[in-house]
Design a protein around this nucleic acid. Structure first.
Lengths: 159, 159
DNA sequence: GCCCATTCCATTGACGCCCATAAAATCCCA
DNA sequence: TGGGATTTTATGGGCGTCAATGGAATGGGC
């Protein structure tokens, strides 16, 4: 598997450390990245995290703006300026910086959420709410797609 | 055969494991996927499951949104974030996570239901009800088609 | 010397992997 | 074609390994 999927919530220990789920660690290892690249998510109270794949994506996003353009400077600051590479200890744990924790409202437990090429780290309760909302949206969107497709079934209807 | 068809209900053992029907296993093997990719069905109290074919479908759905767009993040969270790849043991069994079991109301037995490119896992009794309802709906739909055909028998009347 | 951070070790509970058994389907051969 | 033999499934359980977590020890900087 080369994608981040599923979600787990784990507790921070007294030193503020938290284990990265083993499944995610193996994806990171395959990606060939030492440590954990992360930054406060742009549009959510969560932490975006990943490895080389994530870094490459950000780079290409910024690269789409011409040098010295306003958009580029802003993106560069918001993404590069706030990102950090956390060290992963021998047991596969990291300690989130205060900046990251406060942005995501994290205190004593976190939810790891796979998003394919990257994953997010949420305060568990906030994640529950966000997930419920996202699921609802996708549900209605899927319903719309379904009704579109069903709009002309008569054409090939047999028997 | 390269499609999931038919349905069987099997029991969970004391460890919460359940055998994947042999017919399904051979489809998965042909599909070339290690493990079982699955997630809570969006619009039913059941688990959607499959292999590469299913994953590709999800991926293409998400891929329709540009990176970092709001729609993409939501889709990714609702789909990737809730999906898991279960390990299949030497005897062809999996253990469903608590999240999946609770979404589908599964306790000590499950019904596997083939849907072509994927299959679903239901609580047996819930499946019976759903099936009865679905059958009823298909019946009325068919009846409507029949009356339509009868209205203009000359055109394309079949059967 | 004191404090912070990184590394190392220890526990426990879950999970993966192995083998065993019973029932059912399949095959095979008279 | 029928009945026995063989293989495949479904299921049960034992055991070792690994993941998650907690805490101790070590080392470097102030």
């Amino acid at each position: 598997m080369d994608r981040f999927v599923s979600n787990v919530t784990l507790r921070l220990d007294s030193k503020g450390r938290v284990s990265i789920p083993a499944a995610y660690r193996s994806v990171l290892a395959r990606d060939g990245f030492e440590g954990l690249y992360c930054y406060p998510a742009l549009d959510a109270p969560a932490v975006d995290a990943g490895g080389n794949a994530l870094m490459a994506e950000i780079e290409s996003l910024i690269g789409r703006y011409p040098p010295f353009s306003d958009g580029r400077e802003r993106f560069a600051m918001a993404l590069y300026g706030t990102s950090e590479t956390l060290k992963i200890d021998g047991e596969g744990r990291v300690s989130l910086s205060d900046a990251l924790k406060s942005h995501a409202g994290i205190t004593d437990a976190v939810a790891f959420v796979g998003l394919g090429h990257k994953f997010q780290i949420w305060e568990p309760e906030w994640f529950r709410r966000e997930l419920a909302e996202a699921t609802q949206r996708v549900r209605t969107l899927k319903a719309e797609l379904g009704s579109q497709a069903a709009a002309q079934p008569a054409l090939g209807a047999r028997e």
